[in-house]
Every structure is written in C-alpha cells, then in structure tokens.
Design a protein around this nucleic acid. Sequence first.
DNA 1: AAATGCGTCAACCGCGATCAC
DNA 2: CGTGATCGCGGTTGACGCATT
Length: 272
Amino acid sequence: MELVHGKPCSSGSATPPSDQEDMDLRRGPWTMEEDFMLINYISNHGEGRWNSLARQAGLKRTGKSCRLRWLNYLRPDVRRGNITPEEQLLILELHSRWGNRWSKIAQQLPGRTDNEIKNYWRTRVQKHAKQLQCDVNSKQFKDVVKYIWMPRLLERIHATGSSHNNIYQYSSINGGGGGGVLNQGNINLSLINGKEVEDKGSVVMEEEEEEEEKEMVSSSSSCLWSESLLSPSSSGCGNDQSVLMDFHEVERWWDGAGHMISDNLWNVGHEF
DNA sequence: AAATGCGTCAACCGCGATCAC
DNA sequence: CGTGATCGCGGTTGACGCATT
C-alpha cells in the first residue's frame, strides 16, 4: 500500500520540507526495502540525527518515523513474541508504582519497547478492567490486580519451576519482608536487567532512581515486593492482619462482581 | 461466502524537554 | 541567553487479521 500523502507532515521535522519533498514523504507501513535501507545505513553510520539520517539514507520518511521504526522494530535486541508471566507481573507492579511511564517501565524489560508495553496495557489490562466494569485507575481494580492477579501470576511462575527466559529470576524466601498473600508462600521476583539482585527481595536501584523512589514512597525502604505487593501496609513489612483484611474486602467485592466475569477470565497467566 | 465485530499492534501526532549554535 | 533543531514520551489512530453471525 503506497501512502504518499500530500498534506504536510509536521512530525519531528522542524525544518519544513520543500513542497516537493513534502509531496514525496511516505507514511504508513514500512516496506522491506525501506527496512533494509535503514538497517544498512545505521549499521554503517550509527543512529542519531534522525532527520539527516533519513535524508542521507535515501528514505522518504521523516526522521521521527525512522527513529520509531528502528527502536520499535528493527533494533537487533528487540524481543518479539508473547509477554511472559514474569513480564506481565513486572509490568503490573511497575505500573502500580510509576503509572503510565511506559519508557521507564520498558527499561526494566530488556528488549521490550515502550510501545509494546503500552499496547499490552491498553489491550489486555484495560480490557479486563472494562469487563469488571471498573476504571483501570480505581482502587477496586488496583486491589484486584494486587491481591488476585499478581498472586496468581506468581503462583503460575512458581509452578512452572523456572523462568521462560533468563531475564528474570525468582526465588522463594522465608520470612523477611512481606507477610505473603494468602499465606501461599513468599515468592520474590528480582530484577536482573543489568541491575543487582538481592536474596531478601529488594531491588537494588541505581542511586539516582533510589532518590526518586524515596520521593515516591514515603518509606525509606526499597523493598519492592514486600512493600508494594506482598504487604499492602505502607507502614512496614509483614503485617499479616492487614493483608488478610484487605484481601477479604477485595474478595467480597469480587464475589459480588462474579456475575459479570466470564469463566475463563481468571485463567491468569495463560491469557491475562 | 459475505458482512460485521473485535482485538492487536505498528505507526502517527502533539508537545515538552533537551541540545547546539 | 535566545532560538531553532532534534529527541523522546505518551496518547491516539487506523490497518489488518481472525472470529462470529
């Protein structure tokens, strides 16, 4: 499909193209030939300076379009395929902390792009929120994610015995931080992604991020899972009582909402 | 077989941040 | 310091394929 639009393409280019260039600018899906041209150029000259890159590579695309194509599709380290349960879990957790900071979340999932994660969130997670007839940002939905979906994902990850890939590792921990959801045992998912991993469940963050974290979470602890997932109480780890009370609240609501949920909706991990 | 609905995801857009001169 | 160029992010759109009617 040739999509050569006559209208101005404002994206990215602060230097207005001439009328002739403007007419020639392509939009829409990339062809194999264009992909090849872009890969070839970048392998020889490197990336960056996207507008001039687009011109010099002979591509009738905006620099912005080239950048997007490279980052989201052509880069050699782009991971493709289904989002694994480990990745789902990480996305849910990180989104609960950072909100729609897709690029920041993507940084924690090697090979995944912000676009992919954003699409995943919109198509899968928001769909389920819709089925539950609640807003994706509502406390109800967040609680369901926290106390039902994430534990189930953890269960499934634990049950399969090993990670689908070597990006994440998880381990069972005894005691320490976190009261454990439903007393089903404490599973700690630790980030690898080039960062250090600790046995006790804390993600060791880079200094800069740690500072930011201190601002975001009133607690000075960086114990990610024990604080924000396993224990709903921000006052500390291991408050079993508050875990159970919170869970039962969710459970009651859940029972009430059961009629609107299809049987297979909660086949978490297979199709979230 | 055709029409319609729906989910997915690549690509686009606007805008604020950052960089370079 | 001001200004234009470029980058990067998040929101949105639309094409495509599959399922259902």
